[in-house]
Computed example of a mutant assay.
Amino acid sequence: MNPVVLQSELGDSSVPVRHGKVRDVYDFGDRLLFVATDRISAFDYVLPTGIPGKGEVLTRISQFWFDRLDVPNHFLSTDVSSLPLPDRTNLAALQGRSMVVRRTDVVPVECVVRGYLSGSGWAEYQKSGTVCGVQLPDGLKESSKLPEPIFTPATKAEEGHDENISFERMSELIGHDLSQRLRELSLKVYQQGVEYARSRGIIVADTKFEFGQIDGELILIDEVMTPDSSRFWPQDQYREGGSQLSFDKQFVRDWLLSSGWDRNSAPPSLPDDVVARTAEKYIEAFEKLTGTKF
Protein backbone atom coordinates (compact mmCIF):
# COMPACT_ATOMS: atom_id res chain seq x y z
CA MET A 1 0.00 0.00 0.00
CA ASN A 2 1.20 3.54 -0.80
CA PRO A 3 2.48 5.89 1.95
CA VAL A 4 -0.06 7.90 3.94
CA VAL A 5 -0.92 11.26 2.33
CA LEU A 6 -2.00 13.89 4.86
CA GLN A 7 -1.83 16.80 2.41
CA SER A 8 -1.57 16.90 -1.35
CA GLU A 9 0.47 19.36 -3.39
CA LEU A 10 0.90 20.29 -7.04
CA GLY A 11 4.58 21.13 -7.26
CA ASP A 12 5.33 24.86 -7.02
CA SER A 13 1.76 25.61 -7.99
CA SER A 14 -0.22 28.80 -7.80
CA VAL A 15 -3.41 26.85 -8.53
CA PRO A 16 -6.06 27.97 -5.99
CA VAL A 17 -6.75 25.24 -3.46
CA ARG A 18 -9.28 24.70 -0.68
CA HIS A 19 -8.53 22.24 2.10
CA GLY A 20 -11.52 20.43 3.61
CA LYS A 21 -11.46 17.91 6.42
CA VAL A 22 -10.43 15.15 4.00
CA ARG A 23 -10.32 16.58 0.46
CA ASP A 24 -8.07 19.13 -1.18
CA VAL A 25 -9.87 20.88 -4.06
CA TYR A 26 -7.81 22.55 -6.80
CA ASP A 27 -9.41 25.10 -9.10
CA PHE A 28 -8.83 24.81 -12.87
CA GLY A 29 -11.65 27.08 -14.01
CA ASP A 30 -14.51 25.01 -15.40
CA ARG A 31 -12.96 21.88 -13.90
CA LEU A 32 -11.84 21.01 -10.39
CA LEU A 33 -9.38 18.45 -9.09
CA PHE A 34 -10.60 16.59 -6.01
CA VAL A 35 -7.83 14.86 -4.08
CA ALA A 36 -8.95 12.62 -1.23
CA THR A 37 -6.18 12.53 1.36
CA ASP A 38 -5.79 9.93 4.11
CA ARG A 39 -6.81 12.43 6.79
CA ILE A 40 -9.45 11.28 9.25
CA SER A 41 -11.65 13.40 11.48
CA ALA A 42 -13.53 12.58 14.66
CA PHE A 43 -15.49 14.71 17.10
CA ASP A 44 -15.00 17.71 14.78
CA TYR A 45 -11.18 17.47 14.84
CA VAL A 46 -8.85 16.37 12.05
CA LEU A 47 -6.53 13.86 13.69
CA PRO A 48 -2.73 14.02 13.33
CA THR A 49 -2.60 10.38 12.18
CA GLY A 50 -3.74 9.30 8.72
CA ILE A 51 -5.32 6.00 7.65
CA PRO A 52 -3.39 4.29 4.82
CA GLY A 53 -5.47 3.76 1.70
CA LYS A 54 -8.45 5.73 3.00
CA GLY A 55 -8.37 8.39 0.28
CA GLU A 56 -8.24 5.74 -2.43
CA VAL A 57 -11.16 3.86 -0.88
CA LEU A 58 -13.31 7.01 -0.74
CA THR A 59 -12.45 7.95 -4.33
CA ARG A 60 -13.12 4.49 -5.75
CA ILE A 61 -16.42 4.08 -3.88
CA SER A 62 -17.61 7.49 -5.08
CA GLN A 63 -16.62 6.64 -8.65
CA PHE A 64 -18.48 3.34 -8.33
CA TRP A 65 -21.68 5.15 -7.31
CA PHE A 66 -21.31 7.89 -9.92
CA ASP A 67 -21.15 5.18 -12.59
CA ARG A 68 -24.10 3.26 -11.11
CA LEU A 69 -26.68 5.79 -9.94
CA ASP A 70 -29.27 7.22 -12.29
CA VAL A 71 -28.61 10.89 -11.56
CA PRO A 72 -26.52 13.63 -13.25
CA ASN A 73 -23.18 14.06 -11.50
CA HIS A 74 -19.98 16.08 -11.71
CA PHE A 75 -17.52 13.21 -12.30
CA LEU A 76 -15.44 13.43 -15.48
CA SER A 77 -12.32 11.29 -15.09
CA THR A 78 -9.63 9.91 -12.81
CA ASP A 79 -6.99 10.93 -15.40
CA VAL A 80 -5.30 13.86 -13.68
CA SER A 81 -2.93 14.31 -16.63
CA SER A 82 -5.91 15.76 -18.54
CA LEU A 83 -5.45 18.94 -16.46
CA PRO A 84 -2.80 21.63 -17.06
CA LEU A 85 -0.82 20.59 -14.00
CA PRO A 86 2.21 22.63 -12.91
CA ASP A 87 5.71 21.40 -13.59
CA ARG A 88 7.15 18.95 -11.08
CA THR A 89 3.72 17.71 -9.99
CA ASN A 90 4.09 14.24 -8.51
CA LEU A 91 1.50 12.33 -10.56
CA ALA A 92 2.12 9.09 -8.70
CA ALA A 93 1.03 10.71 -5.42
CA LEU A 94 -2.29 11.72 -7.01
CA GLN A 95 -3.15 8.44 -8.72
CA GLY A 96 -6.03 6.45 -7.25
CA ARG A 97 -7.18 9.22 -4.93
CA SER A 98 -8.10 11.96 -7.43
CA MET A 99 -11.11 12.90 -9.53
CA VAL A 100 -11.42 15.51 -12.26
CA VAL A 101 -14.92 16.97 -11.98
CA ARG A 102 -17.12 19.66 -13.45
CA ARG A 103 -17.42 22.94 -11.58
CA THR A 104 -20.94 23.63 -10.31
CA ASP A 105 -22.68 26.30 -8.30
CA VAL A 106 -22.70 24.47 -4.98
CA VAL A 107 -25.95 24.38 -3.00
CA PRO A 108 -24.96 25.43 0.56
CA VAL A 109 -26.97 22.72 2.32
CA GLU A 110 -26.14 19.11 3.20
CA CYS A 111 -28.89 16.75 2.00
CA VAL A 112 -29.13 14.05 4.66
CA VAL A 113 -31.40 11.02 4.28
CA ARG A 114 -32.05 8.69 7.21
CA GLY A 115 -33.51 5.23 6.93
CA TYR A 116 -32.70 4.19 10.50
CA LEU A 117 -32.73 5.98 13.85
CA SER A 118 -29.14 6.59 14.95
CA GLY A 119 -26.61 9.25 15.95
CA SER A 120 -27.91 12.78 16.47
CA GLY A 121 -31.32 11.66 15.19
CA TRP A 122 -31.66 9.12 18.00
CA ALA A 123 -30.57 11.72 20.56
CA GLU A 124 -33.22 14.19 19.35
CA TYR A 125 -35.93 11.53 19.14
CA GLN A 126 -35.41 10.58 22.79
CA LYS A 127 -36.08 14.18 23.80
CA SER A 128 -38.89 15.20 21.47
CA GLY A 129 -40.03 12.32 19.28
CA THR A 130 -38.77 14.19 16.23
CA VAL A 131 -35.72 14.30 13.97
CA CYS A 132 -35.02 17.71 12.44
CA GLY A 133 -38.65 18.63 12.98
CA VAL A 134 -39.99 15.42 11.39
CA GLN A 135 -42.44 13.75 13.76
CA LEU A 136 -41.80 10.01 14.15
CA PRO A 137 -43.98 7.25 15.67
CA ASP A 138 -43.71 6.51 19.38
CA GLY A 139 -41.86 3.43 20.63
CA LEU A 140 -38.89 3.41 18.25
CA LYS A 141 -35.57 2.14 19.58
CA GLU A 142 -31.98 3.00 18.82
CA SER A 143 -31.16 1.74 15.29
CA SER A 144 -34.84 1.08 14.50
CA LYS A 145 -35.69 1.05 10.82
CA LEU A 146 -37.94 4.02 10.09
CA PRO A 147 -41.37 3.45 8.50
CA GLU A 148 -39.95 5.27 5.46
CA PRO A 149 -36.74 7.24 4.85
CA ILE A 150 -36.81 10.88 5.95
CA PHE A 151 -35.01 13.94 4.60
CA THR A 152 -33.19 15.89 7.32
CA PRO A 153 -31.01 18.70 5.92
CA ALA A 154 -28.04 20.32 7.62
CA THR A 155 -25.96 23.42 7.17
CA LYS A 156 -22.53 22.91 5.60
CA ALA A 157 -19.49 23.54 7.79
CA GLU A 158 -15.91 23.71 6.51
CA GLU A 159 -14.73 23.38 10.09
CA GLY A 160 -16.57 22.12 13.13
CA HIS A 161 -19.88 20.34 13.05
CA ASP A 162 -22.71 20.55 10.51
CA GLU A 163 -25.93 21.75 12.16
CA ASN A 164 -29.21 19.91 11.62
CA ILE A 165 -31.99 22.19 10.37
CA SER A 166 -35.67 21.77 9.53
CA PHE A 167 -36.99 21.64 5.98
CA GLU A 168 -38.68 24.98 6.66
CA ARG A 169 -35.35 26.55 7.61
CA MET A 170 -33.76 25.07 4.47
CA SER A 171 -36.53 26.68 2.41
CA GLU A 172 -35.78 30.04 4.02
CA LEU A 173 -32.11 29.67 3.12
CA ILE A 174 -32.32 28.51 -0.51
CA GLY A 175 -36.00 28.75 -1.51
CA HIS A 176 -38.91 26.34 -1.29
CA ASP A 177 -38.89 25.08 -4.89
CA LEU A 178 -35.18 24.18 -4.83
CA SER A 179 -35.57 22.58 -1.39
CA GLN A 180 -38.45 20.45 -2.65
CA ARG A 181 -36.45 19.33 -5.70
CA LEU A 182 -33.48 18.43 -3.50
CA ARG A 183 -35.63 16.45 -1.09
CA GLU A 184 -37.22 14.41 -3.87
CA LEU A 185 -33.90 13.76 -5.61
CA SER A 186 -32.08 12.86 -2.38
CA LEU A 187 -34.74 10.33 -1.39
CA LYS A 188 -34.65 8.84 -4.90
CA VAL A 189 -30.86 8.47 -4.95
CA TYR A 190 -30.79 7.07 -1.41
CA GLN A 191 -33.35 4.42 -2.34
CA GLN A 192 -31.31 3.38 -5.38
CA GLY A 193 -28.22 3.03 -3.23
CA VAL A 194 -30.01 1.20 -0.42
CA GLU A 195 -31.44 -1.43 -2.74
CA TYR A 196 -28.06 -2.19 -4.29
CA ALA A 197 -26.17 -2.16 -0.97
CA ARG A 198 -28.71 -4.54 0.54
CA SER A 199 -27.90 -7.02 -2.24
CA ARG A 200 -24.27 -6.83 -1.06
CA GLY A 201 -25.15 -7.40 2.60
CA ILE A 202 -24.79 -3.77 3.67
CA ILE A 203 -27.38 -1.55 5.36
CA VAL A 204 -27.00 2.13 4.50
CA ALA A 205 -28.54 3.51 7.69
CA ASP A 206 -28.16 7.13 6.61
CA THR A 207 -26.12 9.20 4.21
CA LYS A 208 -25.25 12.75 3.25
CA PHE A 209 -25.42 14.08 -0.30
CA GLU A 210 -24.16 17.32 -1.76
CA PHE A 211 -25.51 18.94 -4.89
CA GLY A 212 -24.54 21.72 -7.25
CA GLN A 213 -26.24 23.32 -10.22
CA ILE A 214 -25.24 23.83 -13.83
CA ASP A 215 -27.70 26.00 -15.79
CA GLY A 216 -30.42 25.12 -13.29
CA GLU A 217 -29.85 21.35 -13.47
CA LEU A 218 -29.15 19.65 -10.14
CA ILE A 219 -25.86 17.75 -10.17
CA LEU A 220 -24.68 15.22 -7.57
CA ILE A 221 -21.22 16.26 -6.35
CA ASP A 222 -18.45 15.58 -3.83
CA GLU A 223 -18.41 12.04 -2.40
CA VAL A 224 -21.29 9.58 -2.60
CA MET A 225 -22.31 6.92 -0.05
CA THR A 226 -18.85 6.29 1.35
CA PRO A 227 -18.04 5.19 4.93
CA ASP A 228 -17.22 8.85 5.66
CA SER A 229 -20.56 10.24 4.49
CA SER A 230 -22.76 7.32 5.53
CA ARG A 231 -23.41 4.75 8.22
CA PHE A 232 -22.76 1.30 6.73
CA TRP A 233 -23.87 -1.61 8.89
CA PRO A 234 -23.34 -5.33 8.17
CA GLN A 235 -26.80 -6.69 7.45
CA ASP A 236 -26.19 -10.11 9.01
CA GLN A 237 -25.26 -8.54 12.37
CA TYR A 238 -28.02 -5.93 12.59
CA ARG A 239 -29.97 -5.95 15.85
CA GLU A 240 -32.51 -3.27 16.72
CA GLY A 241 -32.18 -1.66 20.15
CA GLY A 242 -28.56 -0.52 20.38
CA SER A 243 -25.54 0.74 18.48
CA GLN A 244 -24.36 -1.28 15.49
CA LEU A 245 -21.07 -2.51 14.14
CA SER A 246 -20.04 -0.28 11.26
CA PHE A 247 -17.64 -0.01 8.32
CA ASP A 248 -16.12 3.31 9.30
CA LYS A 249 -14.12 5.03 12.06
CA GLN A 250 -15.68 3.10 14.92
CA PHE A 251 -12.28 1.95 16.23
CA VAL A 252 -11.00 5.54 16.12
CA ARG A 253 -13.97 6.94 18.06
CA ASP A 254 -13.85 4.14 20.63
CA TRP A 255 -10.13 4.62 21.23
CA LEU A 256 -10.41 8.39 21.53
CA LEU A 257 -13.25 8.05 24.07
CA SER A 258 -11.12 5.71 26.18
CA SER A 259 -7.87 7.67 25.80
CA GLY A 260 -8.57 10.40 28.34
CA TRP A 261 -8.57 13.09 25.63
CA ASP A 262 -10.78 16.05 26.71
CA ARG A 263 -12.15 16.70 23.18
CA ASN A 264 -11.36 20.42 23.65
CA SER A 265 -7.65 20.36 22.80
CA ALA A 266 -5.44 19.00 20.02
CA PRO A 267 -6.25 15.30 19.61
CA PRO A 268 -3.63 12.61 20.28
CA SER A 269 -1.95 10.43 17.67
CA LEU A 270 -3.58 7.07 17.03
CA PRO A 271 -1.79 3.84 17.96
CA ASP A 272 -0.71 1.52 15.15
CA ASP A 273 -3.29 -1.17 15.90
CA VAL A 274 -6.19 1.30 15.71
CA VAL A 275 -4.85 2.64 12.41
CA ALA A 276 -4.51 -0.87 10.98
CA ARG A 277 -7.98 -2.02 12.07
CA THR A 278 -9.58 1.16 10.72
CA ALA A 279 -7.83 0.75 7.35
CA GLU A 280 -9.09 -2.84 7.20
CA LYS A 281 -12.68 -1.66 7.78
CA TYR A 282 -12.53 0.89 4.96
CA ILE A 283 -11.11 -1.70 2.58
CA GLU A 284 -13.69 -4.27 3.69
CA ALA A 285 -16.45 -1.76 2.92
CA PHE A 286 -15.08 -1.18 -0.58
CA GLU A 287 -14.68 -4.87 -1.37
CA LYS A 288 -18.05 -5.87 0.05
CA LEU A 289 -19.88 -3.08 -1.74
CA THR A 290 -18.22 -3.36 -5.16
CA GLY A 291 -17.41 -7.08 -5.24
CA THR A 292 -13.84 -6.31 -6.33
CA LYS A 293 -10.49 -6.55 -4.56
CA PHE A 294 -8.87 -3.33 -3.36
Rank of each mutant, 00 (worst) to 15 (best):
L257G: 00
Q7H: 15
W261M: 10
V71C: 13
S246F: 02
T152V: 11
Y282I: 04
S62F: 04
L94M: 05
E124H: 03
E184G: 15
Q191D: 14
F251T: 14
L83Q: 08
D30V: 12
T89N: 08
D236L: 13
R263H: 12
R88E: 13
G96C: 09
R169D: 13
I203R: 00
L117P: 07
Q63K: 14
K249D: 03
L10R: 04
C132G: 15
D24V: 09
E223L: 05
Y45T: 06
L218M: 09
R253N: 03
L69E: 09
K145R: 15
G129A: 14
F251N: 15
Y125D: 06
F75Q: 01
L182Y: 02
E240F: 00
V4S: 01
P72C: 04
G50M: 10
S98G: 04
S269N: 12
Q235I: 12
P86V: 10
I51R: 02
E184D: 15
D67H: 14
P147D: 04
G133W: 06
G133R: 08
D222F: 06
E110A: 04
L58T: 06
V4Q: 07
H19W: 04
I61P: 02
L69Q: 02
D70Q: 07
A197F: 01
M99C: 03
W233G: 05
E195F: 00
P108C: 13
V131L: 09
T78Q: 14
S118C: 10
D87P: 02
E223A: 10
G133D: 12
G11M: 09
P267M: 06
D248R: 11
N90F: 01
